[in-house]
Amino acid sequence: MTVNWYLLVSAMIFTLGAAGVMIRRNPLVILLCLELMLNAGNLALIGFSRMWGDGAGEIFAIVVMVIAACEVAIGLGIIVALYRRRLPVDVDELRELHG
């Protein structure tokens, strides 16, 4: 399989993730869609790494995974804090960022 195909799949996954972020209103699902977008980026990075036969792209993918893990920890922390304060878990109703 040529690298083109992997990049095309990556573009499709990225598009689906972006559509999900814009459509859904549950912050949990929005975080999941962000994961989709990050993973699409990972697939493209690994594809380019394979194309050059160079390990740098894999290092980038691993760093992206670390960043995704941090984003999940903080995002889920915010959602749990919202739930604790009896705020609606719905991005349309959370327009203000005051504590």
């Binding site: 399989m1 040529t2 690298v3 083109n4 990049l7 394979r50 194309m51 050059w52 036969g53 160079d54």
Partner: peptide
Amino acid sequence: ALGTEGAK
């Protein structure tokens, strides 16, 4: 190079 299987 995108149209290839990648480097050796």
